[in-house]
Amino acid sequence: MKGEAKRIIDRAKAESRKFVTEPEAKEMLRSYGVAVTRDVLCRTAEEAVVAAGKIGYPVVMKLVSPQIVHKTEFNAVRLNVVNDGGVRSAFEEMTNSAKGRLGNIRIDGVLVCETAKGQEMIIGSIKDPQFGQMVMFGLGGVNVEVFKDVSYRLAPIEEIDVIEMISELKGRALLEGFRGREGVDMDALASTLMAVSSLLSDFSEIDEMDLNPIFGNKDGVKVADARIMLH
């Protein structure tokens, strides 16, 4: 809960970081009861192979460094890694390429994550100078990037707010399952949104949050990537 998240934020502040790393962000979310993708932070390629074996292929691999905010810019994400050989080469490539670009970069390791499936969604936050923390919800991919099909509420939100946020989205039918596709567990979605909103209410230090992507299916909702920017 609050204490755990506070410890992480304080550590980032002590290191004069304006953001928390992905494992830290996921830890904060977990402590508020938000489901995140299973992951293991690995220091060596061999650790990564063991982790991938436990999590199950295919896996996602991401480089973790307190110096990297935008992972894709650093080519620091590998999706759909299907076997041990793939894990080993992805590990080497990512760490070498980051070192090549940033020299004595501090690398915490490589995060090996489960590949989540389902409807892609996004939860975000902004801090308005007048109204404070606001939570945003939208459907992922083109819905958010092209159609800007998102809704906002002031944090904290209640269940009725979640219902209204969802009903505002043009693409809401996608959550109910569309053309034979699986729908999203709405209770899990509602509690995820409410939990994120209470995290936001508890910490005015959070400037922006991007939980993207989030995957939802009939079994639940999982945050696959998280970025939290601090004041």
Binding site: P129, M134, V144, R153
Partner: peptide, 20 residues
């Protein structure tokens, strides 16, 4: 700076506050 911020202006907050 992110998807979230790119879509928000101040009026977004007013709108949300009014609706809510």
């Amino acid at each position: 700076a992110s998807h979230t911020a790119a879509m928000a202006g101040t009026f977004t907050a007013y709108e949300a506050a009014f609706k809510q």
